[in-house]
């Protein structure tokens, strides 16, 4: 058990190193002069020199890498070209809305998708199952921002039930304004995540329902509901939790788009602003930040397997 935890933690180190190396090399090995690409078409020669200086591109590549890793280890994700602020500071300013939006989305998704997927698996072939599968295919097909605009159009503009855009902090403005502003972004962002997790839950529960021990439970005279909850869902937990972790990557992509549609001043907006301002250090810093978060969440999920499955004790 303990050695499993240690092993899992150590196993993330090479992944972190590879992500860091990849992000580092992406800039250095890109075709052409990265400094002039970043500076854009209308940049002056001085701009390019300034950017090259800021990115440290003049030094030998190994020196650059050592310095870069060294500053990464101290939690330094680089400095924005245009605002001259550390990326970590910018992240700190913008993290709250993103964190809240992802949390509400994950909670809403799990509450909807897991029961839906379980029900679909239990009633495989029924209209409920078909409905869930149809929703799931459709959810994978509609672009997040189109969904967002449809919601805005119907709920905010036509029905005028909820505000069109913006974000209100729970801590500054209170719970109700926060909820009014977060409902539509959460719904928008949840659709693809629900599609993914409902589908995976359905598949896993269906597979478990074929298992011999489910037959044993039925042979004991156990009721279908308890067969489903106590035997099937418990055994399907590992793949479901795994896909929730993998889905985090999908969620991060969706956050960028959703925040842009609803004008939420979070990390997603920060990415977009950086793209428009050609502020590459911010993009790079955010990639590292999100990747590390993703690795961390998946590490936690790996460790949670020991709660679900007693067989995992290497």
């Amino acid at each position: 058990m303990f050695s499993y935890v240690i092993k899992r933690i150590l196993a993330t180190i090479p992944v972190i190193v590879i992500v860091a190396a990849f992000v580092f090399l992406m800039l250095r090995l890109s075709p052409g002069d990265p400094a002039s690409v970043i500076a854009g078409d209308y940049a002056t020669a001085e701009d390019i020199v300034r950017i090259r200086e800021a990115l440290g591109l003049n030094e030998p590549i190994l020196v650059q890498f050592t310095k870069w890793v060294g500053s990464l280890m101290q939690g330094d994700l680089g400095i924005s070209i245009f605002t001259n602020l550390p990326v970590t500071t910018l992240i700190g300013q913008r993290i709250e809305p993103t964190l809240m939006l992802t949390l509400t989305t994950i909670i809403f998704t799990v509450l909807v998708a897991v029961p839906l997927g379980t029900l679909a698996a239990w009633k495989a072939g029924s209209w409920i199952d078909r409905g869930v599968m149809l929703f799931s295919v459709a959810g994978f097909s509609v672009p997040v921002f189109v969904l967002g605009y449809i919601l805005i159009y119907v709920v905010a503009i036509k029905l005028q039930w909820l505000p069109v855009q913006g974000y209100r902090s729970m801590f500054e403005h209170g719970l109700w304004p926060f909820l009014r502003h977060i409902i539509m972004p959460t719904l928008t962002l949840s659709v693809i995540f629900i599609a993914l997790i409902a589908r995976m839950t359905r598949a896993s529960v269906m597979e478990v329902l074929q298992e011999d021990y489910v037959r044993t439970a039925r042979a004991k005279g156990q009721s279908e509901v308890k067969v489903l909850l106590r035997h099937a869902l418990r055994n399907a937990a590992v793949p479901i939790v795994t896909v929730i972790g993998i889905g985090i990557a999908l969620l991060i992509g969706g956050v960028v788009v959703t925040e842009s549609v609803y004008n939420i001043p979070g990390l997603g907006r920060l990415v977009l602003d950086a793209v428009l301002a050609r502020d590459y250090p911010i993009i790079q810093g955010l990639i590292l930040f999100f990747s590390f978060i993703y690795i961390l969440i998946n590490l936690i999920i790996d460790l949670s397997y020991t709660l679900f499955d007693p067989r995992i004790r290497y």
Binding site: D212, R234, N235, D309
Partner: peptide, 8 residues
Amino acid sequence: MTALNPVM
């Protein structure tokens, strides 16, 4: 082996 629930 398969007739018993592995997580119970």
